[in-house]
Design a protein around this nucleic acid. Structure first.
Lengths: 224, 224, 224, 224
DNA sequence: TATGAATGAGGTTTCATTCAT
DNA sequence: AATGAATGAAACCTCATTCAT
């Protein structure tokens, strides 16, 4: 294989999966709270309620834990967006729902999102790329929504797909990256409402605008 | 007073300034390359070509070095944008020039920008705030450009000033935050051209669009 | 609670006790020989035949080692005096036996006694007091002997209990504090014999003197 | 010579003397307050109001400073006792005056006395002996008083001169060695009064006792 | 003669990792 | 499979001493 997999001294795959989930959860919590370098293996062991030795049965390295943690964080994000889109069919609504969902996900586990920004560099090259690939998968969910809107004639068909997608993604991340600024000024929902208006301005066609008005600005209505 | 100051055992202010500059430069380089926690004091001493002991004559702590480093990075950004605006008077051009300058500054010292994102958390509360305040100063330079465009009737007067400014800022940062994605796809100048088009779409008035067309898309012409 | 406790990262109390005893012994030896500040943790680790890291599993600080060392020294003194009095019932004999025992104890581990004099100051306030309290416990053993002699009518009943006790204690300490003077002039036994004569002169009643003569100066006869 | 002298890089003997006095005073103060090892050369330089470099022009070592400090402390004690005896001729009064003076000297610079007890060991062998010799000089002042009393028939002529002298000396030192015990219980004057009574009990002849009664216990009357 | 900036050896402490049980 | 005591490399920081000015 490569340096990508995390090796274990234990055989039973079910056991491995269970323990890793437990360790990863503890690692995410600890790293998020204290940062990667300031967290000790002992911290993680304590949080997970296991011995230090056990950790090294399921993981080769402290870095392995970081890798598993980041992977899980990004993976959970990628899982949650489709959930928010379930049952929503109208493209503009889907776009809005996706943006809102992504912001909320980031809002809910802000520290974990920051973790990804801060500590991905601490991984080896190969794993860093794997993490970035994972991030792209999430971005592609957004990109798909954008593309659907274009195809439905709601977004201008010369929209800069790559850049616009990233603009949206950065907007969702900014909520936590600049939490020190935004928290205090507004809540997530207001953030999303105002942000969507701004973002859509740049891309909506006349038809898109009409659609948005008719759906009663539904694109920006809070889900839950 | 407060924990904000960096204290020195040496008295002579000129010497302090010179040495601190030297140490800060070395610290920025080292921290950018290897990260704060992975960089040792010896690394910095070596890079600066001084002894370990000397460092502690001008700085109390390793954290002091991080603080000085971040301060200098942000300060240098704040210095360079006004330089790029010198002599440019037309609001739309000024806006474009500011964006381009900020992107280029980030491009030139990408690692340093990342440093600010990654390691600001490693500072104590008070200093973290000081760093964030410094970042706001830069953002305000952008915000001023936006406001000028609004006042000149080039941007819609209901533009969400706060959010749009941040959208612009995030766009500039994204060039390095997502360098792993963008480098390879395009150069900075193309990035800025395409980005400006997208950003402006959201805010330009009819007059603004005319102005932009007449000035030959000048707002997005590369400076150097 | 309080800063008095020495905290350990290891749980098992038996192991803690065993290791601490081992470390304390090494610490007493090292500190006695080289002084607290001049002794390094490595010195102690080497003497104890353990790794440096192990020490920090059982002790938080270098100061903890000093505290444990001083505590053990004083505690061992306090244990040994009652042993020497076992079976001796006549008050004057008990007094003499106590003095002789204390001198011999100091003689046997002179460096450790000096240690207490020299380095108690290096402890924090609270622990310094704890050490002093321990010393008082030993003094009280002597004081009890004196009081018994008074009650038996062997010592004048207007004896200055506090000061006389301290005179005795200082006499016992002087053997090591001024070892550079006394060693060479005489042995411990002679020191005790001559000292007892002097001390008793100040306090004996007529009855006490008779008793002393009858018991054949037994109070000052060497034990072993 | 030997390792006894302190070498200087400066020639002019007057200058040397003046500077050394200045440095020694600072050293005594610093060492007394913080202990030898915890005091830095910088501390002493600051107290003396000179530069660090200057110190090394008049002294070779940090240890030199300790030596000078201890020497000066003991020397000053040796100077002050004869002063207290001036004009007093009656032997018993002289004895009392000497004891009181020594106690007061110790009381006045208690920390310095402790310094001698604690840090003499930090000196090389030869210098340690020199310090001890200096201490003997002071003891001899007391011993002379005792001898005079014996010769005047006031003290028993079989008094154990060596041991009794040390008993007296230890009594004077105990005031500071056990300050944590005695301070709080009484003042120096009471300490001396009660102590003298106890000490004299052991050695006075019948004549001595009469003389003491007649002189109105003058031996224990406070001087100033 | 006096200064104080510069040096660097060496001390204390932490913590990822191993391994006997 | 699980434990947690033990290891020791390596990090940060201090401070006695030197030396150019």
């Amino acid at each position: 294989m490569s340096t990508l997999n995390v090796k274990s001294k234990v055989e039973d795959p079910e056991r491995i999966e269970a323990r890793r989930a437990q360790l990863t959860a503890a690692a995410i919590a600890a790293f998020s709270e204290q940062g990667y370098h300031t967290t000790t293996i002992r911290d993680i062991a304590q949080r997970a309620g296991v011995s230090v030795g056990l950790i090294y049965q399921y993981v080769h390295d402290k870095e392995d834990l970081l890798y598993l943690a980041l992977l899980e964080v990004l993976e959970s994000y990628r899982r949650q967006i489709p959930q928010a889109l379930e049952g929503v069919t109208e493209p503009l609504e889907r776009f809005g729902a996706a943006v809102r969902a992504y912001c909320k996900v980031n809002d809910a586990s802000g520290q974990a999102t920051l973790l990804a920004y801060r500590e991905t560099q601490s991984l080896g090259k190969e794993r860093r790329s794997a993490i970035q690939a994972k991030e792209l998968q999430t971005n592609d969910l957004i990109k798909a929504c954008v593309r659907d809107c274009v195809e439905a004639g709601l977004f201008a068909d010369d929209v800069d797909l790559e850049l616009f997608t990233y603009q949206v993604v950065m907007f969702c991340h900014a909520w936590v990256l600049k939490a020190w600024r935004f928290r205090g000024l507004m809540g997530v929902d207001e953030y999303v409402d105002r942000g969507l208006r701004l973002l859509l301005n740049a891309v909506l066609t006349a038809r898109g605008e009409r659609q948005l008005r008719e759906s009663g600005g539904g694109a920006s209505a809070p889900r839950r």
